[in-house]
Design a protein around this nucleic acid. Structure first.
Lengths: 272, 272
DNA sequence: CAGCTTCATGCAGTTTTATGCTCTTTTCAG
DNA sequence: CTGAAAAGAGCATAAAACTGCATGAAGCTG
């Protein structure tokens, strides 16, 4: 390793930087290079590998990068996709799978569905193996491949700008909804839900997309696990009353439960 | 930088990648090429064949690819295509990959591209690793994941009806092109080409889609291997004059060559 | 300012992971 | 049917990760 001057610009004298700035620098590095190793960073910042590891863990927790054995890579660069096969019908007992099953149970044969991105809705889609003659519209590019083929009469993918990290398209609304569709049910995964701020998600584009989806659906089913109760994501989608059914893994607390009741939302708690 | 010349752009310097990133890269590779061999990967990543095998096994377990004797193929390809063994790789290296490289060489930095479905255009897209600031619009749902991330400023996916066998969307044209786009170049893979009937492909919907794509592109580049010379697919796209450049692996015969010349089509024969 | 807490850091010991090597078994092509 | 290539099963090793702990700086409190 080099003592001081590094070849690449912007990496000179990274020693004696404050922890917070060091982490910011670290994120910049991993984004620029694509990948970094723990030992490499330790030498670069002149700190121990333990500190580097702790930094990386913390940044990974915040979703700013993806931790791997030996180092870290840029956030979107890892494959985290689940198995696209139907044998998941039995497996998995986590909250997400339970929610997925409960949500799938709400769907009847022949329905038209609108499904947005996110791992929970993806899991729900995979649980639709026993349904028939479904028509499905989605902005999740991974979904068509994992949908049980026998269950779907037609699958439509919404066009738009591709967002690499989430494998979804997010569009100028005209672009996505030009056909003017109407559906029975929208299956929506979100980022946060609270009594005060209602429903929220990570980006404004996605919030707009979800809002549009809810408008064209006769019934809006929101899938969210209990860890997101009382937590608000960046972009607000709308008030609780915008959804008709909430599917989750644990009963919400008193405040949220009251707000949901007032908004006439059916709450489905997935059985263990 | 490298002492080994890399077969394709976007595959440069795959050695010394972190295990997790290497597997992600591996998935991208197999999706782009359709299939890969163990020995080839071992050389590419500079690791032992044992490690490659373990990687492939693990990824197959997660359903991200399908394992075969000698290598692996893309997840969906095992069922739909009759791929008994990897010998197709040899054939592909001969024709498809050469065409892909030659086509990618026609693209400059900052261009806007329209790319349709098909394995040849998919291979060409994977060769764009050295380009920068591309804007890409496609109806191929597998493409966004195999496009070299550094090469693309924006990726748009066209909405429409999902066709499972080909992993593409085929739309009511309004649905797909509502935004009214205009692009520099259309990269088009087709099913057949002949002096009498011109360009053709497998389905009417796809023929309509390709026809629309060619209309909004300033330059239409058609990719087709020599086995399709003189062969007509089910649905006619239009006359030869609709395209500007033909990229193929062998010079066409006299009759077709004459027709191409008359239609003022530039013929690019990919070097061996 | 003394005493307390919090945080960041580094160190040592243990556990896990990743990798390559060898040997045997299986698969595939001619 | 036979030989070569590929796969599978152990095994050894080195790197990385995890755990608990000690240290020292910074910040807060009365």
């Amino acid at each position: 390793m080099n003592d001081r001057q590094d070849a690449a610009a912007g990496e000179s004298d990274l020693r004696d930087t404050l922890p917070a700035k060091r982490r910011a620098e670290l994120v910049r590095l991993v984004r620029a290079r694509g990948q970094v190793t723990v030992t490499e960073l330790a030498a670069l910042f002149d700190i121990s590998v333990d500190t580097v590891r702790r930094d990386l863990d913390q940044l990974a927790e915040r979703g700013l990068l993806a931790r791997t054995h030996g180092g870290a890579v840029a956030a979107g660069d890892l494959v985290t996709q689940d198995t696209p096969f139907i044998d998941r019908l039995v497996r998995q007992k986590g909250a997400k799978a339970r929610i997925a099953r409960a949500a799938a149970a709400l769907i009847g044969d022949g329905e038209t569905l609108l499904i947005n991105g996110g791992s929970t809705t993806r899991a729900a889609a995979a649980e639709l193996g026993l349904r028939r003659n479904l028509t499905i519209v989605t902005n999740n590019l991974a979904l068509p491949q994992i949908l049980p083929p026998d269950a779907c009469r037609d699958v439509y993918v919404m066009g738009g700008h591709y967002r690499h990290e989430a494998q979804v398209t997010l569009g100028e609304v005209r672009f996505a909804f030009a056909a003017g569709i109407n559906v029975d049910t929208a299956l929506i995964g979100i980022g946060g839900i609270s009594a005060e701020r209602g429903l929220s998600t990570t980006s404004i584009a996605e919030a707009v997309m979800i809002s549009e989806m809810m408008k064209v659906a006769r019934r809006s089913v929101v899938l969210v696990d209990s860890s997101k109760f009382g937590h608000d994501s960046f972009a607000t989608i709308g008030p609780l009353a915008r959804m008709h059914v909430l599917v989750t893994d644990e009963a919400p607390g008193a405040e949220l439960a009251a707000a949901l009741a007032e908004s006439q939302v059916d709450v489905v708690v997935a059985p263990g």
